[in-house]
Nucleic acid binder design. Structure first.
Lengths: 186, 186
DNA sequence: GCATCGGGAGAACGACCGTTCTCCCGATCG
DNA sequence: CGATCGGGAGAACGGTCGTTCTCCCGATGC
């Protein structure tokens, strides 16, 4: 197994284990066993656990941004529908059997107070969601605060769906978002 | 120091340290040093760290429920104002200098996957917030889903305020809540 | 006054974790 | 073919953590 394949397998494995059990409950040995990548190779590719954690979060950040944009472009035309489509995307995510909440909310809760890099990545990720929503609301001519409010609904849905295990918050948030969007129409 | 005073000091100290650094980053020795309670006494009162964590969360659960109810009864009359007052209470909380997010969201992210007791306490706590909001919306004759939606706004505000460090989400969520409440008026 | 008890301080213990090291094998290249 | 290199498996190391144990002191009761 070459370095590139090892990196991919490590990121996949670490992301899955971190999502399931949190970061600190997963030892490097568990990642090695589950990935089949030797410890030597692991530390060649990611010289420390901190760097692996950050790499996992950064890749997830890019994945989510791309998926959201792609979903919006695919299923919706126009900013109104694209803003609402965010909540359909959430619904699909929440319905995945292994869903256990947003990795950024969860990891910030665990490490945000002691790992500034993690806190920064989480902050940037949440800002990117807000910015994506702001693109849509700006195009509608709605006031800027609407994007923040839609982001609150989305993040609240992630938190509550993670804790309760129910996918319903996506639909509830979508309905609320529609009310806010309609009320803000110029 | 007797057992009762030790328990109080331990809960206070542990809650503060857990909020600052997360649970797993805080050793029992740090709690002992910061609280001034000896290890022997600590393990007399809380026979394991797991039990201490659960006790901290359970006390916080009661504190928050009581504070929310008291705040609602004090500053507002009528269900409409009481529902909105929840977000004023959030604003005061977010403005505290040591605020670093909701303990239940944070601890669920860290331990929810490996500590079922923690997951249950977090779930119950979030359900109690929803139930409190449902009391208000029911009194207004609004459809039941409105309480869920207000809870999503509140939880989204907690998550975003924790991650960004800004208290603004409280006001943004309150404005959105007002729109939803007005739209649901029979 | 002396034996007893409970508690404080912190050392000690066993487990685990992140990281590094050792040993060995198989491939590559002259 | 023989030397060299890179990597795999896992042992080893240093540190930390949760938990327990030891030692000592002061208070209490007869």
């Amino acid at each position: 197994m070459d370095a590139e394949a090892a990196e991919l397998k490590l990121l996949d494995t670490a992301e899955r284990l971190f999502d399931e059990r949190g970061v600190q409950s997963v030892g490097m040995d568990a990642i090695r066993t589950a990935s089949g990548v030797s410890l030597k190779r692991l530390y060649q590719v990611f010289p420390s656990k901190d760097l692996l954690v950050e790499a996992v979060l950064r890749r997830r950040d890019e994945t989510v941004r791309a998926a959201l944009t792609a979903h919006g472009a695919r299923v919706a035309d126009g900013p109104y529908e694209r803003a609402l489509a965010v909540f359909d995307w959430l619904a699909g995510w929440f319905a995945e059997p292994e869903f256990r909440g947003c990795a950024f909310i969860n990891t910030f809760g665990e490490l945000g107070g002691v790992a500034p890099a993690v806190a920064t990545i989480a902050r940037d990720h949440k800002e990117s969601l807000r910015a994506y929503l702001a693109e849509q609301t700006d195009a509608l001519g709605a006031p800027p605060v609407l994007a923040d409010q839609l982001a609150l609904l989305a993040n609240g849905a992630m938190a509550v769906a993670g804790i309760t295990g129910s996918p319903e918050p996506a639909a509830q948030a979508k309905a609320a978002a529609r009310v806010l969007l309609d009320a803000a129409r110029p």
